[in-house]
């Protein structure tokens, strides 16, 4: 009987109208745009979950240190880059009618080896993220480091990208070529 009946998506109460056979429910539910989103702010403390359109207001109101800058081409100046231990620099960039979350993360991936990871996430679905690309550029004295990719969606998170080094990765010795007065300047360009 179950094989012949169509079941509603798990997130039907949030507005999803999809109905599928029981055996095929798992895949679309994973990508369902009505699935609650977790707070994308790095750090282990926030347990907030909610709909996609509530993510940006949540970040703005509950994580007040995250500031927003308008424009598709900006300079992200991470201050006090030499601070030891696990540190995050987070901001939002607003352009093309969307918000992007920019994260620079310093962490120890291997014992005694600190690395920086920089990544851009779209506060939107995976499908929406596919229509954008971003470029991160570090410029120092006669040196330039560029990373170009498609932004991740906040639906996916960044843990896998960091684990697979699928983002801009550089270590502390390389960072020093691009640091001035303790600040690291990253030019972030988003295009459609």
């Amino acid at each position: 009987v179950a094989k012949s009946v169509l079941f509603p998506c798990k997130y039907a109460s949030s507005g999803c109208e999809l109905t599928v056979p029981h055996a095929e429910k798992a895949a679309p539910e994973k990508l369902c745009k009505f699935r609650p989103y977790s707070c994308p702010c790095p750090g282990p403390f926030c347990r907030w979950q909610g709909p996609l359109d509530a993510v940006t207001p949540h970040l703005t109101h509950q994580h007040k240190f995250i500031r927003t800058l308008q424009g598709d081409d900006i300079f992200f100046i991470a201050t006090d880059i030499h601070l030891p231990g696990a540190v995050n620099w987070v901001m939002m960039q607003s352009c093309f009618g969307f918000h992007f979350l920019l994260i620079l993360k310093k962490q120890v991936k291997y014992i005694g080896h600190q690395q920086f990871f920089a990544i851009v996430q779209l506060i939107g679905t995976r499908k929406q993220a596919e229509s954008f690309s971003y470029q991160l550029q570090l410029t120092g004295c006669k040196r330039r480091l560029i990373w170009e990719a498609t932004p991740r969606s906040v639906q996916e998170g960044i843990a896998t990208a960091i684990m697979n080094s699928d983002c801009l990765v550089f270590d502390t010795s390389m960072a020093q070529f691009f640091t001035e007065g303790g600040n690291l300047v990253i030019r972030v360009t988003i295009s459609k």
């Binding site: 800058l69 300079f75 992200f76 201050t79 880059i81 601070l83 696990a86 995050n88 962490q107």
Partner: peptide
């Protein structure tokens, strides 16, 4: 066409207790 310098923003570090949590 005039070149407009991109806007800049200073982003302060946020130090979380991740390290402590990993050590526990």
């Amino acid at each position: 066409r005039t070149y407009r310098m991109p806007k800049e923003i200073r982003v302060e570090p946020q130090k979380f207790a991740e390290e402590l949590i990993h050590r526990l």
